[in-house]
Design a binder for these strands. Structure first.
Lengths: 186, 186
DNA sequence: TCCGCTTTGTACCAATCGGTACAGACCGAG
DNA sequence: CTCGGTCTGTACCGATTGGTACAAAGCGGA
């Protein structure tokens, strides 16, 4: 990867944390320079489109990560049940067992949604579709309904965990999900 | 109600819509004056504490509405099952069948949470506790788990409905919830 | 070493931010 | 009608917003 590409990737990781904690509107340029350690010069060099491009880059990176770590295995993994277990494990790790908010979900709720509607909708649609496909392959009935419910439960668990300031909510939700998606054979 | 009280109540209703569509940080004073039809003079007369007091008033009003229409019946209604059905009906109406976002949930996800942590946490804790109590009275096992899951599913359904721009997600989630919370006797 | 491109800090911009001050409009009680 | 307080439109405040301009610093290849 080029020097510029590497630095951009590092900046995107830092930007994700800034947007996660402040929201899009709340992430002021001064918060961004503080959070990334980059001056305005560097920032606008890396992201000529300004704040909007920074947020878009963050969303794209999240999308790409989930695609590689979760959606693709769900769709193409040889063992559907194993892919579902992997999804639960990766999700738990990604959201730090409920201690980390979902940026895509947060953007979906406020006025930021309109700006990034396609990316936000695409992310959740891809998740739901990939999980439905894996459930169907695993022989579960009502795969589409179960998939939608699982995605929705994960988002809701993140909202509730943050609202109650109690990450354990997230762990309980994932355990319940595992029981529903992967019942013991027999 | 006094003239001032009435006008304040009307202002709070308009403010709720403004915060719902823009988020806390995104709700600029100009958006607020446009959305309420009130000038700065009136606004700061009604809410001397400024934007923070406006948002607090909105949260308090939401809290009071749910307390009266949902939580209290759940806790004190003579028929627990009927109270749960009422909760589902009122919730569907309040969130306009998935077309309206949850302000408390939106505040919970971004940096606004810290500012209103007590109100936000209290709202969800009250909901979960009231529903758990009703479920226990209705003779359901694992009442606390079911209650937490129901509250979380409602929030998640609102996130997903908005992310996918598909309100039907919310209706499906409520139907599933009804089946889980109120199984047909026998 | 020197050159040329990339990167970066800094000064600056107009616009808008949340908030204040206050004069006058409004309005009900006497 | 007059009075006194309740409202409200407007002008204004310093601070901060997202963004631009640009000169100097940094740095890799020849």
């Amino acid at each position: 990867m080029s020097r510029r590409g590497r630095e951009r990737a590092e900046a995107v990781a830092a930007l994700a944390e800034v947007f996660r904690t402040h929201g899009y509107e709340g992430a002021s340029l001064s918060a961004i320079t503080a959070g990334t350690g980059l001056g305005k010069g560097s920032l606008y060099h890396l992201f000529p489109g300004g704040k909007a491009e920074m947020a878009a880059a963050v969303l794209a990176e999240i999308d790409a990560w989930f695609e590689a770590a979760v959606f693709a295995p769900l769709r193409d993994g040889p063992d559907a049940a194993a892919a579902i277990r992997r999804m639960l494990r990766e999700t738990d790790a990604y959201f730090r067992s409920g201690g980390r908010a979902c940026l895509v979900g947060a953007f979906a709720l406020d006025g930021t949604r309109d700006r990034f509607a396609a990316r936000i909708g695409g992310y959740f649609a891809a998740w739901r579709a990939a999980l439905a496909q894996a459930l169907a392959r695993a022989g579960r009935d009502a795969a589409a309904d179960r998939a939608e419910h699982a995605v929705l439960a994960i988002q809701g668990a993140l909202v509730l965990a943050r609202a109650l300031d109690d990450p354990a909510v997230f762990g309980r939700a994932l355990a319940r999900l595992e029981a529903e998606l992967l019942p013991p054979p027999g």
